[in-house]
Amino acid sequence: MIKKTLTSVLSALAIAGVVSTVSTPSQAAGGAEIPSQSWSWNGPFGTFDRAALRRGLQVYAEVCSSCHSLDLVHYRDLGNIGFSIDEIKAFAIDYEVEDGPDDEGEMFTREAKPADRFVGPFANEQAARASNGGAYPPDLSLMTKARKNGANYIYALLTGYEEEAPDGVVLMDGMNYNHYFPGNQIAMAPPVDDDYVEYADGTSTSKEQIAHDIVTFLAWTAEPELEERKSLGLKVMIFLVVLTGMLYGLKRKIWAKLH
């Protein structure tokens, strides 16, 4: 009896442990609970909202790209989310790529082509730090996968700034107060605000909408395979369920005489 009780106590302990991992906020160093947003790509059938992706690219190009690179994405990748080749060429042509050496051994710059990676704002990490007071604006390509609860976290971060730090909090020089950043002090100045961009499709340019659009875009840059993955997954799952059902039927039939 005692052992039985002990067993159940210990297993309860273990289960409680597993459950509490899920509910404990991971930001041990400070930072509020991250509220969940509803995203178009959530769920087994989710896809990226194409209009939001277009607006998000605009936000990246007009706002984020002055500090953050997007090294893992190529201009040609925009073809996968509905941009025509002419649109891609027209977008890329605004950026300059260093190429070479030419026949004289000199490096030269040329207009970016669809096959090029997104051109970043800085030549290297040192240059980036020098322009940003020592802080390094990280590459955004994988950001939604590189943070816990990535999409919700970035949305919360972008909209979670406070103009004044709460009483009792002393901000370090050049730092800003953010509810959701671990430690609450972040070097990045509030990157988006109402009407920071102008949308051609007439969508509202509230801070929340801008944050929503850029997060959608970054979710795509992090997981460009997401739509293909989910649609192939559905077919594979249906196939496997059918096959496994048949295997089970066969197993029952073969074993029937034994029992």
Binding site: L240, L243, T244, L247, Y248, L250, K251, I254, W255
Partner: peptide, 9 residues
Amino acid sequence: IKDLFGMGV
């Protein structure tokens, strides 16, 4: 057959 069914699962 039992292993194949297990594989399916």
